[in-house]
Amino acid sequence: MRDGPSTILVGVDGSTSSLRAAAYALGLARRQGSRLIAVYVRTPPSALLPLADTGGAAATVIDTQDALEQELRTAFAERLHGVDVDARLVVRAGEPYTELCDAAREVQADAVIVGRSANVLHRVAGSIGNKLVRCGRWPVTVVP
């Protein structure tokens, strides 16, 4: 019998707060003997971008996401080296809130951890952390 979550899902996007959230989740998973699922959601460029794209912005967005994915995979492997935790990195494409909810449902997560949004607009419109808390399906920890 466990006294904590058996499966922890953490959202990562390369931001400082998401990397802090991943470090916190890794420590929690190690201490609790939990499975750790890190999810990176690639946001596809707008369907209209190629129509107005004369400078290759769509390719730049995709290249940036490819580079970030590779950095996350490398950092994930380095952080897990020598740590006894059942962990994996999952890469999905779509809207971050929807994909995190779907992933949490699929892996039957007992806890969701995300980093605090640095976007000022999210304070008005609501961040992913706020949306996950309001969703009410999992305990959510928002790491500053």
Rank of each mutant, 00 (worst) to 15 (best):
Gln32Val: 13
Pro44Phe: 11
Tyr24Ser: 11
Tyr24Phe: 14
Gly27Glu: 13
Pro5Thr: 08
Leu48Gln: 11
Ile8Lys: 00
Val41Thr: 12
Ser18Glu: 04
Leu49Tyr: 14
Leu26Gly: 09
Ser34Ala: 15
Leu36Thr: 10
Tyr40Ser: 01
Leu36Gly: 02
Ser6Phe: 03
Leu48His: 10
Leu26Ile: 12
Gly14Cys: 04
Arg31Ile: 01
Ala22Thr: 06
Gly11Tyr: 02
Leu36Arg: 08
Ala47Leu: 12
Arg20His: 12
Gly27Gln: 12
Arg31Pro: 00
Arg31Gln: 15
Leu36Asn: 03
Leu36Trp: 00
Arg30Cys: 09
Leu9Met: 10
Ala22Arg: 14
Val41Asn: 01
Tyr40Val: 01
Arg42Pro: 01
Ser18Gln: 07
Thr43Arg: 15
Gln32Ile: 06
Pro45His: 08
Ile8Asn: 03
Gly14His: 01
Thr7Val: 15
Arg20Asp: 14
Arg30Asn: 11
Ser17Pro: 02
Ala47Val: 12
Ala47Gln: 11
Leu49Ala: 13
Ala29Phe: 07
Ala22Ser: 05
Ala29Gln: 02
Leu28Thr: 09
Gly4Trp: 11
Ser15Leu: 08
Ala23Arg: 14
Thr43Met: 12
Thr7Gln: 04
Ala23Tyr: 00
Ile37Cys: 12
Ser46Asn: 10
Ala25Ile: 04
Gly11His: 03
Arg20Asn: 04
Val39Asp: 02
Pro44Asp: 08
Ala29Lys: 03
Leu28Cys: 09
Arg30His: 13
Thr16Gln: 14
Ala23Met: 07
Ala38Phe: 05
Ser34Cys: 11
Tyr24Gly: 03
Ala21Tyr: 01
Ala38Pro: 00
Val10Arg: 02
Arg35Phe: 06
Ser15Asp: 07
Gly4Gln: 10
